[in-house]
Amino acid sequence: MSALSGMTGFGRADGALDGWSWSVEARSVNGRNLEVRFRGPPGFDALERLAKTSAQARLSRGQVTIGVQAKRPDAATGALKINQAVLDRYLELANALAEEGATPPSADGLLGLRGVLEVPDEDDDAEARAAIEAAIALSLDQALDALKLSREREGSQLRPVIVDFIDRIEAMVAVAEAEAGAQTLAIRERFTRRMTELAPDAPGLEDRIFLEAAALATKADVREELDRLTAHVASARTLLDQPPSGRKLDFLMQEFMREANTLCSKSATTPLTAVGLDLKAVIEQLREQVQNVE
């Protein structure tokens, strides 16, 4: 059985290779569908495709933001290289001038001459860049794994809350079933009182009262609504054990509310109406929690 997962979470992974260092952060919030946004360093365009593919393999819903920050601290110093051939040529010219009385050149003066210091073009080393990209991609996977674990922790906290609401709905349906039994008698008594007040001497009054009361009782019968509510309770319990089920649970909440509304509209007694109103309140609370489920 898969773990129930929420849609809010955070994951981070760091890495370093060949003078490069980077950090990857992945975070998510609620969303009807899966939406992945990526921000990465220049020169690593392929990482966006990798990040989205990796997120889609792990997650099914939520707004996911993935950010990669990468830097190479030694780019300004360690990567510099002296062009010995150019330096030797400058020294040759400087020595010739020194023999004629010119001031010998200083080291910093020589290093500042054009062409003596070179900064290698990092993009020229495709193999090294590919290795860095592959290492960052591994950190992407690690950050997304951490994000998924974070969402599962949220799911583990959501589950008992949702189960409690489902239990409360089930208990309310049982109370409503008990109250529904009094509907027919209440309708008959109410209709009898009205007919007696309006036409006490009408011929065949008792038979007419019986037929009309029976028709009203049929219209006010809430057994179908209660049966469907019981079925919805069973479906909700099943879906909790079949994640990712957030979309299905969200749809089921609409069906719960539809039956509760019909129950209230058909109610002919104050106690049954009270149960129906309480039921609607609990269903709404359950719906708010379900919206956090992946």
Rank of each mutant, 00 (worst) to 15 (best):
S2H: 01
M7D: 03
D14N: 11
R27M: 05
N30H: 02
L34M: 00
E48Q: 04
S54K: 12
A55Q: 04
R58P: 02
Q63H: 03
V68I: 15
K71N: 14
D74E: 15
G78W: 08
A79V: 12
E92V: 10
L93I: 15
A94Q: 10
A98D: 14
G101R: 03
G101F: 07
G112F: 10
G112S: 11
E133P: 03
L140Q: 02
A143P: 07
S150L: 09
Q157G: 05
L158F: 03
I162R: 02
I166P: 03
R168K: 15
A171N: 09
V173R: 06
A174G: 13
E177H: 07
E177P: 11
A180W: 00
A182N: 11
L185W: 03
A186G: 05
R190S: 08
F191K: 00
E197K: 03
L198G: 09
G204R: 12
L211P: 03
A215M: 12
A215I: 09
L216P: 04
L216S: 04
A217V: 03
D221S: 07
E224M: 13
L229V: 05
L239G: 01
L240P: 01
P244W: 03
S245A: 15
R247Q: 11
K248C: 11
L249N: 12
F251N: 09
Q254W: 06
E255R: 10
L263I: 12
C264N: 05
C264R: 08
S265I: 07
K280D: 07
A281K: 07
E284K: 09
Q291L: 04
E294Y: 05
